[in-house]
Nucleic acid binder design. Structure first.
Ligand SMILES: [Mn+2]
Ligand SMILES: [Mn+2]
Ligand SMILES: [Mn+2]
Ligand SMILES: [Mn+2]
Lengths: 228, 228
DNA sequence: TTTCGAATTTAGTCTTATCTAAAAATAAAT
DNA sequence: ATTTATTTTTAGATAAGACTAAATTCGAAA
C-alpha cells in the first residue's frame, strides 16, 4: 500500500537529498529524470538510486515507472522546496552573520538543511529579515514553497553593448566562486558587454563602469544577469 | 586491532550521543558507568548498549571491560566535551539571537551539536561573544575542552538565612523550566532562604529582595546556587 | 525484425544501529 | 559453598543505505 500522506510526510536525510537532486534535475525539462542522472548528481551508483526511487515512489513524492525515469509530484515538489528554503536561509546566515565567504557555505548548509524544527526556520527567517535570495543569487522559497524568480540570462548569451546586473551564478562550486572573487565579479555588480571575441567566444566586460576584465565563454556561461 | 587514533577520531552521531551520555554519567562518581545506566539515559535497550560499548572501546574513547562497566578515556573526554561545547553554544544562539525560550532549545541543540564544521563553531563562538555559560547555567568548554566550573550548591542544601544567586539548573526538562518561569525563578536571581518547613522539607525563598515564594524540596534540589 | 549496447533493475553483501529472546556472568542471599 | 536474582552479553532479526556483479529491459542500428 502507498504511504497514506494524510498530514505530514517525513523523509530521512538521505531521502531529502535525493528528492532535492530530483527536483533540481527536473527544472526546465518536462521529461522524466533518469536513474543515471540522479546517480551522477548524488555521486552514488545507479543500483543505489533504483532502490531509493522505489522508496520515494512508495511515499508518493515521485511518480516512478520502472525503466522510464521519474517525475516529481506536487507533494514532492513542496517538500523539496522546503529543504531548499532551509538550505538557502542557512547560507544567508553563514555569510551575513558568521562572515563565511560565499564559497564556504555550501557543505555546511548541506548538513544544516536537515535539522527538523519549523520554529527554528521561522525564527531564522525573521532574524535574517526575510531574505529573498541566497548568497549565490538563488531565490529563497517562502514557507508555502512559492518562489518568485527573476528573469535572467547567462552572460555569454548577451550581445555587445548590452548592460545589466549580475544576480546569480549557475555553478556554486568553491573553485568557480573563488575565481569570480579573484576577477572582481560579484552578485550585484553592474556590467556591460564591451566585446565578444570571435576566436574563442570569450568576453570583455566592464564592471561598475570602471574595471574591464576578460573571461572565458565557460565562465560567462555560469554567470546570470538581469538585463537593463 | 584497536583504532589507531593517530590524529583525528571521527564518531558517528549515535556514537557522539552515547559518549556524551557516558561522560555525564561519569561526572562525580569514580566507579564505572553501567550498561543499564547508559541504556536508561539513552532510552535504548541494554543489548544495544553492549554493542555500542564494544565499538567505543575499539575506538579507544572508553575503557571497556565486559561486565564491569566503562570508564571514559582522556581522548573520549575531549571528544565528549567538544560535543557538549557545540550543544551549549547552539543553545545560547537559539536563546540570545532567535528568541527561543530556555525550555525550547534542548531538542534542537541535540541535532545541531552533530554538525561537522570547526569553522562554524569557531565563528559561532565569536558571534556570541565567547559565552561562558549556556541558558541553563552550564559552563561552555573552550575549544581545548577546558571548563571553568563555578562552586555551587543545590538550593535545598542551604540553611535558613543563607543567600546567593541562582546560577544553574540540574534538570533542563521543559516541564521543570516552565515551572520555574511560572514561579518567577531564573538564572541570575538573587535569593535568600527564609524558611525550611519541617513537615515536608519545602522552602520559602526571597527572590530579588521583593518576592517570596514556596517551593518543594524536589524543585529546590534542581536549582543550583552560588552562595554569597 | 532481429540484434546489440547502454541503461536499469535485481540479487546478494556490508555496515550501522536498533530490537527481542536466550545464554552467561556477576553479585547477593541463603 | 550453593543457589538465586540481577545484570550483562550474545545470537539472530530487521531496516536504511550503500556497494558489486549479474540479469533484464529498452531503444537504436543494422
Ligand atoms: Mn543535505
Ligand atoms: Mn546557494
Ligand atoms: Mn545529539
Ligand atoms: Mn543546556
Amino acid at each position: 500500500m502507498p504511504q497514506s500522506n494524510k498530514k505530514s510526510m517525513t523523509l530521512t536525510t538521505a531521502e531529502e537529498n535525493y528528492l532535492k537532486a530530483i527536483y533540481h534535475l527536473s527544472e526546465g525539462g518536462k521529461k522524466g529524470v533518469s536513474t543515471n542522472d540522479v546517480a551522477a548528481e548524488m555521486k552514488t551508483k545507479p543500483a543505489s538510486v533504483s532502490d531509493m526511487l522505489r522508496k520515494l515512489g512508495e511515499k508518493e513524492v515521485i511518480e516512478y515507472r520502472k525503466y522510464y525515469g521519474v517525475h516529481i509530484t506536487d507533494e514532492g515538489k513542496k517538500l523539496a522546496l522546503q529543504t531548499i528554503r532551509k538550505h538557502r536561509l542557512w547560507e544567508v546566515f553563514l555569510v551575513e552573520k558568521l562572515n563565511f565567504a560565499w564559497d564556504e557555505v555550501h557543505e555546511v548548509a548541506e548538513e544544516l538543511e536537515h535539522i527538523q524544527s519549523p520554529l527554528l526556520i521561522q525564527r531564522l527567517d525573521a532574524y535574517l529579515n526575510y531574505p529573498k535570495f541566497d548568497p549565490h543569487g538563488d531565490p529563497i522559497p517562502d514557507e508555502f514553497g512559492d518562489v518568485r524568480a527573476r528573469p535572467r540570462v547567462a552572460l555569454n548569451e548577451m550581445e555587445v553593448d548590452q548592460t545589466g546586473q549580475i544576480v546569480a551564478v549557475k555553478d556554486s562550486s568553491a573553485a568557480f566562486l573563488r575565481h569570480l572573487d579573484k576577477m572582481g565579479a560579484y552578485i550585484g555588480a553592474r556590467i556591460k558587454v564591451l566585446d565578444k571575441v570571435e576566436f574563442d567566444g570569450s568576453l570583455e566586460i566592464l564592471v561598475d563602469q570602471k574595471k574591464t576584465l576578460f573571461m572565458s565563454k565557460d565562465v560567462a556561461g555560469n554567470i546570470l544577469v538581469q538585463q537593463s
